[in-house]
Simulated assay, not measured.
Amino acid sequence: MKQARIEIARAYDELGSDGGTRFLVDRMWPRGVKKESLQVEAWLRDVAPSTELRRWFDHDPARWETFTERYCAELDANPAAWQPIVDAAKHGRVTLLFGARDREHNQAVVLRDYLARKLAHH
């Protein structure tokens, strides 16, 4: 088994061909981005935070810690949503694509760290 590597990238960035398996992890498709340009394995809407949690967070860094806790609880309750990412990561590099402007405070950061912990325990 290869070393699992999960990375994140903004859907609006120039994406090279070395990103491994790509998953879009936003509930909504990034505005103005063509589907062909992302070259995603899958669009995993259900792995994104719930609409209620996303609206509450509103990309406010002051709410980051609580957002992280609540989102991890949602992930704990829905392992089928993130299992395709774990399965792909067991075979090589995975890139989680997100649309948010803030590169440090978004669901892909939380998801990457959450899945890294899951993979470390297996």
Rank of each mutant, 00 (worst) to 15 (best):
A116G: 13
F98L: 06
R93D: 02
E69F: 04
Q83V: 09
R54N: 02
H59S: 06
R101A: 15
D76S: 05
G16T: 09
P30G: 07
E36C: 10
R10D: 03
A42R: 15
P61L: 01
A88P: 04
W82Y: 15
T51Q: 12
A48H: 06
L44A: 10
D58I: 00
P79N: 14
H59C: 00
R55T: 00
W29Y: 13
A9S: 13
D102S: 09
D18Q: 14
L96P: 02
W82L: 07
L119W: 09
V94G: 04
V86L: 11
A42Q: 15
P61D: 01
F57V: 00
K90Y: 08
G19V: 09
Y71W: 04
Y12K: 05
F98R: 08
S50P: 02
K34W: 08
L44Y: 10
G92F: 10
H105W: 15
A108G: 08
L44D: 11
W82I: 05
N78W: 05
E65K: 08
A62P: 00
A62V: 02
E65Y: 00
A80R: 15
D46A: 12
H121L: 12
A62H: 00
V86Q: 04
P61G: 01
F23L: 05
K35Q: 14
H121Y: 04
T51K: 09
N106E: 12
L119A: 11
A88E: 05
P30K: 06
Y71V: 06
R117D: 13
T68P: 01
W82V: 04
A62Y: 00
I85F: 12
L115H: 05
P79K: 12
A88L: 03
G92V: 09
H91D: 06
R103H: 14
N106L: 11
E36R: 15
R63G: 01
T68K: 11
W43A: 08
D87K: 14
D46P: 02
H105K: 14
P49S: 02
G99R: 13
T95Y: 11
A48R: 04
A108D: 08
A42V: 11
H59Q: 08
S37A: 15
N78E: 09
A116I: 08
G99K: 13
L38R: 07
A73V: 14
H91A: 07
H105S: 14
T95I: 07
H122V: 10
A116Y: 06
L53G: 04
A116S: 13
G16N: 11
L38Q: 07
R117A: 15
W43Y: 09
R45D: 10
K2H: 14
A4I: 05
A100P: 12
E74H: 03
R55Q: 08
L24V: 05
R63V: 01
H121P: 00
Q83I: 07
R112E: 03
Q39Y: 01
V47K: 07
A108M: 07
T66Y: 00
A62S: 11
A77M: 07
V47F: 06
A89T: 05
F57K: 02
A42T: 12
E7D: 13
Y12Q: 02
R117Y: 03
L53Y: 02
A9C: 06
K118N: 01
K35G: 04
N78V: 03
